[in-house]
Amino acid sequence: MSPLRLYLRAIAAMTAKDLKAEWRSREMFSAMLVFGLLVIFIFNFALEMKPAERGALTGGILWVTLAFTGTLGLNRAFAAEKDRGSLDGLLLAPVDRSAIYLSKTLSSLVIMLATAAVLLPLYSLFYNQNLLLPGILLVILLGCSGYVLVGALLASMAVQARTRDILLPILLFPVAIPLLVAAVKATGAFLAGVNLSEIQPWLLLLAAYNLIFLAVAFMAFDYIVEE
């Protein structure tokens, strides 16, 4: 079997293992969902938005909610492996270690998108604002993938520290600012029905962010996880 197929098989095996374990325990998904719902409720009561203001604020509220819930999941992605001592088992696998990073990114993305799939209709219901538009779904896909790409990398660094739960948001939020700004702007623009040509720069920024952090992770992950 070619090294590439072995590598892809290892990614598939690690991702499937994470998702199967999560399906059985629903440890991350339920925590992220409850937290996301709470954030939406709190904003709903705290801001008391007039119908005219909703469009302008929705992008911000939505991405704050997704960023907070995503951080919860990312914190556990590597911490759970570290706590039960199974990270060594993955590091002993006879494949390039970037396979571990990619599998964690994929499983975290699936869980984050599953959480978003429940939160979006509920948000639309509470705020009377339809978010289930193809353009917004594309922004959510690009935004969430960029967020987990950088988040998984930083989570693998933070997991070595005793204060990892605090450390990850402190590391992640500043690095994710360009991504979150682009996602908020693109979401707001799609809701306002702005021309696609005007939204395109934000979408390109999201795509570029994904590519840059994918490349950085490939180069850096092996050094991060090695003692």
């Binding site: 079997m1 095996a13 293992k17 199967k20 325990s25 039960r84 001592g85 199974s86 060594d88 002993l92």
Partner: peptide, 28 residues
Amino acid sequence: LGMLGHQPMLYGDLTAAENLLFFARLYN
């Protein structure tokens, strides 16, 4: 090489056979 350390390096939410199947896939 195989290694057995202080920790069992296993997954509690998988069965015994699923744990070994996971590692069998990693080692092809």
